[in-house]
Amino acid sequence: MSDRGGRGAACGDGRPMGRRGFLRTASGLLVSGGLLAACDSEGPRSAQPLLDFAERQNERLERGLFRHTSMARVPGGARAAGDAFPSYHIADEEPEWDVATNGTWALAVGGLVRTPLRITLEALMAMPRVTQRVPHYCVEGWTAVAEVTGVRVRELATLAGAHPQAGYVDFTSFDEGYHESWDRESAEHDQTLVVYAKDGQPLSPKYGAPARVHSPTRLGYKNTKYLTSVMFMADRNGGYWTDRGYEWYGGT
């Protein structure tokens, strides 16, 4: 076989492209074409079961990695973000607790508990308080440092006598229907607080007054603001962003 033509080189030993070669080339073109067409898209719909499978396995791994002793630490010299700490709410207007229509705000602790509680802000502030300087990890990729003061969720669980079979905790709010449910382990981490003060000041409506959940062990969207209740549950019940396609676990 002469080697003079470029064709011999391109198609292998000068043989014309066989069926296998054609299939290889065609599948290569299909794959690269598919990848190009997939740009800026969510990818092929048929991949969804695979993505769901990966999310379930990742969650198992993440829950396995979770340690109560792993503490978020603020790097030395990091300043509190102060007013540069971003905020948002899902209601059109900034949610504010209206005493005239709703009565005095009180945190409900309920669900699978021995003693359902209603804890007023004064009572909450009288409980053992924790002040911690921690980063806040947003799902978008930014971090913001804040010094927050509040009560450990674990404290509330003990006080209400949460049932051991309650593997999940739902944090609900008065910001429209916003809520996010957590696994109980993360909710009872030392750094998971119901917070009523930020940077030494009472929580402002911008940051979720009168009280919010705050924990560096969870991405920002899991940290319900404008808190109304802490419900201990046997099953998880999703959450605002979880129901909109973000992963339920959202751990850090």
Partner: peptide, 11 residues
């Protein structure tokens, strides 16, 4: 980019 939106890209 790929993924369409933040959550999709994260998945």
């Amino acid at each position: 980019t790929f993924g369409g939106w933040l959550g999709g890209a994260r998945h």
